[in-house]
Design a binder for these strands. Structure first.
Length: 291
DNA sequence: CACTTGACCTGTCCGC
DNA sequence: TGCGGACAGGTCAAGT
């Protein structure tokens, strides 16, 4: 589900809602919610206070003031939804709420805070995970060690993108953009969108791209990620922000899920096909494959 | 080694 | 209305 803009939207929402909250209890009936967890979740979570909420790639990092952190990967269908005391009892949440009473059928983890507010980890497909670990060890776990740079950091340049891309010179450019070890945070939506903006066919091998194309791709990746953050991310099916609201980026999408509709630039019909197992959307007129 | 495919799960949609 | 199959925003492991 969530790519960088969706996770960023959730993190910004949680930052407003969660800082200073103290854990009262956590309820998870499935150990798969905490795979590879090495510390006693109850022992180090209960009674601890939330300091900051951050993002690295597609992972949410909830830092506690006791030196531990709760990290969350939402994978395809995960949601982290906050309910205040009022909302938790069903009477107070907005009438246009897009999700009903919680917990529901897809709830995997329920967290209670001492002020009676709650945080729900919903995840229909159960691919997501949580992990509690000492904050100083975050950078050392495999997932983070392999992660590439953040595309929106101010010191990330097109030259850095270029030097990372050429390591995978014979791969299709889209596959490389989806590789979190090359660049952190891009998924299927923003790979397709940024390649359309740059007029590059997703199957183009990296070594067939010019430096100026990579420079343009760099700019377009940042443009589309920032635009989507402004729109609160993309809701295709399941994505909701921390308050249970949809994102609106897909109203502005140029190719993703627009197969059969005209290209926004040239009017040609957008098509969809599979590339390395992923649904891929292009304008066949403007995104020509260079062999 | 570099790259591709299947597996992990559940729900939904589409064609017969 | 029912049933089978394809598909869904991500990442691994296993295969070629």
């Amino acid at each position: 589900m969530p790519e960088l803009p969706e996770v960023e939207t959730i993190v910004r929402g949680l930052s407003k809602l969660l800082i200073g909250k103290i854990f009262l209890s956590i309820d998870f009936d499935n150990p798969k919610s905490f795979p590879n967890n090495l510390v006693d979740v109850n022992k180090f979570l209960i009674g601890s206070k939330i300091g900051t909420v951050k993002r690295r790639g597609k992972v949410i990092i909830i830092n506690l003031t006791n030196g531990y952190s709760l990290i969350v990967h939402l994978k395809m269908t995960g949601q982290l939804i906050y309910r205040s005391n009022q909302q938790s009892f069903g009477g107070g949440h907005p009438t246009d709420s897009l999700i009903g009473n919680l917990p529901d059928k897809s709830t995997r983890v329920t967290i209670d805070f001492t002020d009676s507010s709650k945080l729900f980890f919903n995840d229909q497909r159960k691919f997501g995970w949580m992990r509690l670990l000492p904050t100083i060890e975050i950078e050392n776990i495999d997932f983070f060690k392999k992660l590439g740079p953040e595309p929106l950091e101010s010191n990330f340049s097109w030259q850095k993108l270029y030097s990372r891309l050429v390591k995978r010179s014979k791969s299709p450019i889209k596959s490389v953009l989806l590789d979190q070890g090359i660049l952190a945070g891009i998924g299927n939506i923003y790979a397709d969108e940024s390649l359309w903006m740059t007029k590059i066919h997703p199957a183009t091998k990296v070594n067939k791209l010019s430096k100026s194309e990579i420079k343009n791709l760099y700019n377009n990746i940042r443009t589309v990620l920032n635009l989507s953050i402004d729109k609160g991310g993309s809701t295709d099916r399941n994505y909701l922000n921390a308050e249970g609201e949809k994102g609106s980026y897909l109203k502005f999408a140029n190719v993703f899920r627009r197969q059969g509709q005209p290209c926004m630039r040239c009017g040609e019909t957008i098509i969809k096909f599979k590339l390395n197992g992923r649904g891929t959307h292009i304008c066949p007129n403007e995104q020509r494959l260079v062999e």
